[in-house]
C-alpha cells in the first residue's frame, strides 16, 4: 500500500464525490416525481393504467443498470433520427444520459416501493375518508400518500444507497464521478488497490450519512411511535 498516493488523491477524489452526489440527488428527485403517479397507476384496477407501468417496472428491474446506461448513451445515438432530433442537445451529453438512465431505473424501483406503501395503508383509514366524502384526489393527497410515504421510508432508504452505489457506473460513459476519478488516477499511477480502496472509503462515508439522514427522517415522520414527552 502506498499511503502517499492515497492521501495525495483525496482532493481530486472529493471533486469526483461531488459529481456523484449531484448525479444521485438529481436522479432521485426526478425518480420520485415519476414514481408517485406511476405507483398510483400501478395500483389502479384499470388494466390500461396498470399494465404499461407493470411492463416498465419489469424492464428496468429485470435488466442490469449497465445495460440501461449503454442503451441510452451508445444505443440511442445509433439512429440518425435521434442525432437530428430535438433531444440531441440533451442526449449528446454523458451527464444527461446518466441522469436519464439513473432516473428511469430508480423510478422503477421507487414505484414498487411506494406501491407497497399504498397497499399497506390500513383499509379503515381509507373507508373513514370515503365516509367523510373525500374525493379520490383528496383521499390520495391527505390519507393514502402520506401514509404510504411513511411506510415506504425504510425501503426507500435502501434504494438511495443502491442508487449511490449504482452511480459508479457513470464512469463507464466518460463521466468523472468518484469512480471515474479513481480510474483516471490509476491510469497514471498503476495503483488500483490504493485508489479503489480510497474511493471505497469515501463511498462508505457517504453511505453512513445517508443512513443517518434516513433515521432522522423516519423519526420525524412517525411521531405516533415516539414515547410521549414527559
Amino acid at each position: 500500500m502506498n499511503l502517499e498516493v492515497m492521501i495525495d488523491s483525496i482532493p481530486r477524489l472529493l471533486d469526483g464525490a461531488l459529481v456523484t452526489i449531484q448525479l444521485v440527488a438529481l436522479a432521485l428527485a426526478i425518480g420520485i416525481v415519476l414514481a408517485v403517479p406511476f405507483a398510483v397507476m400501478r395500483v389502479s384496477r384499470r388494466w390500461w393504467l396498470s399494465g404499461p407501468v407493470y411492463g416498465y417496472v419489469f424492464f428496468f428491474r429485470g435488466t442490469p443498470l449497465l445495460v440501461q446506461i449503454f442503451l441510452v448513451y451508445y444505443g440511442l445515438s445509433q439512429f440518425e433520427a435521434v442525432r437530428q432530433g430535438l433531444l440531441w442537445p440533451l442526449l449528446r451529453e454523458p451527464y444527461w444520459c446518466a441522469i436519464i438512465a439513473f432516473s428511469l431505473n430508480t423510478a422503477a424501483y421507487t414505484t414498487e416501493i411506494i406501491r407497497g406503501g399504498i397497499l399497506g395503508v390500513p383499509h379503515g383509514e381509507i373507508e373513514a375518508a370515503r365516509a367523510l366524502g373525500m374525493s379520490k384526489f383528496l383521499l390520495y393527497r391527505r390519507i393514502v400518500l402520506p401514509g404510504a410515504f411513511r411506510l415506504a421510508l425504510p425501503a426507500y432508504g435502501n434504494e438511495i444507497i443502491f442508487m449511490l452505489k449504482g452511480s459508479a457506473l457513470a464512469s463507464t460513459i466518460t463521466l468523472l464521478d468518484l469512480t471515474g476519478v479513481a480510474r483516471t488516477i490509476i491510469a497514471r499511477t498503476y495503483m488500483p488497490i490504493e485508489l479503489f480502496a480510497m474511493a471505497g472509503i469515501i463511498y462508505l462515508i457517504l453511505t453512513f450519512f445517508i443512513v443517518q439522514a434516513i433515521r432522522a427522517a423516519e423519526h420525524r415522520l412517525s411521531p405516533q411511535t415516539r414515547p410521549p414527552p414527559s
Binding site: Y74, S77, Q78, R83, R92, T174
Partner: peptide, 18 residues
C-alpha cells in the same frame, strides 16, 4: 476532455457527433 474505456467507444462518439 472525454476519456473512454476503449478506442472503439471513442470512435463511436466521434462518429455520432458527440
Amino acid at each position: 476532455i472525454k476519456l473512454y474505456d476503449t478506442q472503439e467507444n471513442a470512435n463511436l462518439d466521434l462518429g455520432n457527433g458527440r
